[in-house]
């Protein structure tokens, strides 16, 4: 059992939890993820690592409720425990493999959207600890849905917040901010790391392709074991089929086949996909979609 030390609702449907998980805390690096199960009947849910404390042996996770399993998770309070918590899974961010010198010579831009702000945070923090100030764009639909602003401010070089409805910070999508920074405000970036909803990453990649900024994205497809065994997380990158759990989760965004990845995500993960599955299954549908039980 893995004890939850802190649990907090960051904003509507987004929760942050600090969990006792010694091995993961000791071994994890920015860019990696964990798989968590609430109880012995639960699904294995991949979640991003938002922070970690090697001395205390804790890992901070952030989750967004999307279906029955994540709602069950969100109900847990400090003092409760997860039945299973395994990690770190996936490969560390490629930036962490570079020398401090190489990193300092680069201008790095992070683009975070919604709950994707959580996995961006440990990367920016890690860079800060290695003497690198990275610029960060955080996008949210509206002011109330913005998360981790204060934390990000402490570790980012420049932080640009933008809201779709203009209720806070800049107004508009993250892609607009990228374009403004580069074309209007004289910024130059050598590399961009974008993490957020698949549709956001797709459009960020379109924009950075135009601006000729190499871009890394972090994918969160459907997974079961998270160790390369099931192949559910396969994505097409360039001409190759990759497994996000062992080859990723970070990939060259300009090569990722986003439309296919979004469609593959539907099967159990989105309302639309699950409804379609239920209709297709008809009388053999049994509610395992997480929607109807």
């Amino acid at each position: 059992m893995y004890k939850i030390l802190e649990a907090e609702e960051l904003t509507t449907n987004i929760y942050k939890m600090v969990v006792e998980a010694k091995r993961t805390a000791e071994a994890c690096m920015p860019g990696q993820f964990v798989i968590v199960r609430t109880d012995e009947n639960s699904e294995r849910i991949p979640l991003t690592i938002c922070d970690y404390d090697r001395e205390k042996g804790t890992v901070t996770i952030v989750l967004q409720t999307v279906g029955a399993s994540t709602y069950k998770m969100a109900n847990l309070k400090a003092g409760d425990s997860f039945h299973d918590f395994v990690g770190p899974l996936g490969r560390p961010s490629e930036l962490t493999a570079e020398s401090d010198e190489a990193l300092r010579s680069k201008k790095i831009l992070f683009v975070a959207g919604g709950v994707g702000t959580a996995p961006v945070y440990p990367q920016v923090k890690w860079l800060k600890e290695h003497g690198v100030d990275a610029d960060v764009i955080v996008g949210a639909k509206t002011k109330d849905l913005l998360i981790l602003e204060k934390e990000m401010e402490e570790v980012a070089g420049n932080l640009y917040v933008t809201t779709d409805d203009g209720s806070y910070g800049r107004s508009g999508m993250v892609t607009q901010t990228i374009k403004d920074l580069v074309t209007e405000e004289g910024k130059h970036y050598d590399i961009c790391v974008a993490i957020g909803p698949m549709i956001m990453m797709k459009f960020v990649c379109k924009m950075t392709e135009e601006l000729e900024i190499p871009t890394i994205v972090s994918l969160n497809p459907i997974m079961v074991d998270g160790t390369g065994m099931c192949g559910a997380c396969r994505v097409t990158v360039g001409d190759e089929v990759k497994f996000a759990c062992v080859d990723g989760p970070e990939f060259d965004g300009h090569k990722v086949h986003f439309d296919e990845a979004m469609k593959r995500q539907q099967i159990y993960k989105t309302e639309e996909g699950r409804a379609y599955l239920a209709a297709k299954e008809g009388d053999t549908h049994h509610g395992g979609c997480g929607n109807c039980n």
């Binding site: 009947n41 294995r44 079961v224 599955l277 299954e281 008809g282 053999t284």
Partner: peptide, 17 residues
């Protein structure tokens, strides 16, 4: 492993025709 054959399990499994 995830017991999706059992209707009470949380894990989904597409049941094709």
């Amino acid at each position: 492993l995830m017991k999706a054959f059992d209707e009470t399990a949380d894990t989904p499994l597409m049941r094709g025709k």
